[in-house]
Structures are given as structure tokens and as C-alpha cells.
Design a protein around this nucleic acid. Sequence first.
DNA 1: GTCTGATGTAAGATTATCTTACCACGTGTC
DNA 2: GACACGTGGTAAGATAATCTTACATCAGAC
Lengths: 121, 121
Amino acid sequence: MTELDSGKRMQIAERLKEARKLAGLSQSHVAKMLGLHRPSISEMEAGNRRVSADELARLAETYDVSVAWLLGEAPETLDAQDPRLELAARELSKLKPDDLERLLKLLAAMRSDSTANGGNR
Amino acid sequence: MTELDSGKRMQIAERLKEARKLAGLSQSHVAKMLGLHRPSISEMEAGNRRVSADELARLAETYDVSVAWLLGEAPETLDAQDPRLELAARELSKLKPDDLERLLKLLAAMRSDSTANGGNR
DNA sequence: GTCTGATGTAAGATTATCTTACCACGTGTC
DNA sequence: GACACGTGGTAAGATAATCTTACATCAGAC
């Protein structure tokens, strides 16, 4: 919380404000919808107040935007560059939960095994 | 916070715990990464403590899952409703080609093992 | 048994949020 | 002009959360 997060909080604050305006809502209106007081909304958008995870979800819904965008993240769409990954994913989805668990543990083991390795991507 | 939010918070809590375990990290480890104390992580995962928006973003990054999933929301990219698939796919992308081959065969074996299976998706 | 690491939880100190209130600004209306 | 109204920013004490340290339990390794 030193001041590193404050940068992120500021960014979130800006997005919240922008999203609200795009939705054509006033702070009062939003406050009522979420069951909060108006000053809370004001402080959120000023970056002086933390936004909780559940509030974030409700805000995203209210403003009709994605939480990811509110958090200042990029669109991103998992890279399915390697066709084998797609194949693997398909296989994975066919596994039973228990099997998936085992596999994930195996993967974790592989990962901690080759610590110094330099992956690829 | 009457008790309506607590439902959502509980759901988030569960996802946080699951995501951490899938990432193969301990609470202590995560606490250090985020610059928090361990009890904070423990309480977050118990649903007794709110998670701020910026913490949520950092946790999602740390666990390699989407914030949307942590919030208990629907799928995003890929056919993965289960972030474990996404996680697994990411892990797979780090493997060497040979290892990937062997893994795929192992997957096939697992699948034919559990013939009586039934449910997927 | 003993040690270590992981996790849960308690209690006082600390800090953030809530609630109410007041302020300024802009827009109409009379 | 004065007036009311909606909007948004901010202050201050009461309230509620989190933080920090500590202790406790459980599982596994030696």
C-alpha cells in the first residue's frame, strides 16, 4: 500500500468515473443502486477510497462494462497460436475433475523441477 | 453488507483459495508477493475480509487466472469455464515439445482409463 | 519424539469507511 | 437579480474494518 498500489487505484478510479458517465448516471443514482452513500462513490472515483471486489463486480454490471476494463487491463485473448495447445485444451476438457487435479499437480511438479529453465511462449 | 454481499464475498473467497492452490503457492508465499501479512490472505480466503480491487487484480496476475473468474463470473475466452484449463494450457505452453508429446499420450491414457465417466461440460 | 512449514484464529492498536453536514458550481425559472 | 434544484467535492466525529503480533493446531519429514 506504500504508494505503488495508489497508481493502480488511481487508474481504477478514472475508469469508474468514465464508465459511470458513459452509462449516463449520476453519483447519486449509482449510490442508490448499490445501496451506498453518494460520498462513497465520489471518493471511489477520486481514488481516495478502496473499492472492494464485490463492489467492483456490481459496478461493472451497473455500468455495463467488464471488470477487466475497470481494472485497466487489456482485452487479451489467450494465445492459441500453437495448435497443439488447442488440442491439449480439448483433451483437458474431457478429463474428469480428479484426473485434472492429478495432472495439474504433475504440471506443478514439472514446473518446480526446471526452475532455471527459460520457458518459451 | 447486510448479508447479501457476504454471499458474493464467500464465492470470491472460494475462488481465491482454489486459484492459489492451483498455482501451487502457500499463503505465506502469496503474502510476501503482495506485500501483505499472511493472516490477511487467510481471512480473504475465509470470506471474513474484503478484497480490494487492486488486490484482486494482483491476485489474478499472481495466480494466472482472470479477474472475471475470481469474481465468479462466466467464461471469457477459450471454452474454459474452468480456469484450470486456462492455467493448464499456460503450463503446457511452457513445456518442451517432447514433454508435451508425452503428456498428450498420458492424457489419452487417462481418458480411456475412466471409460465410465460421464460428465463434461 | 522433535522439528518445520502451512493454516486458522484471537486481541489490541491502527486505519479506513460511513454518515451527516456544509460548500461551490452550473442550469433553469421567475 | 434571487431562487430552487441537481450535481459533485470535502470535512469531522462515530463506526467498522483491517493490521500486526501472538499463540494454537495439524501434517509430514527427520
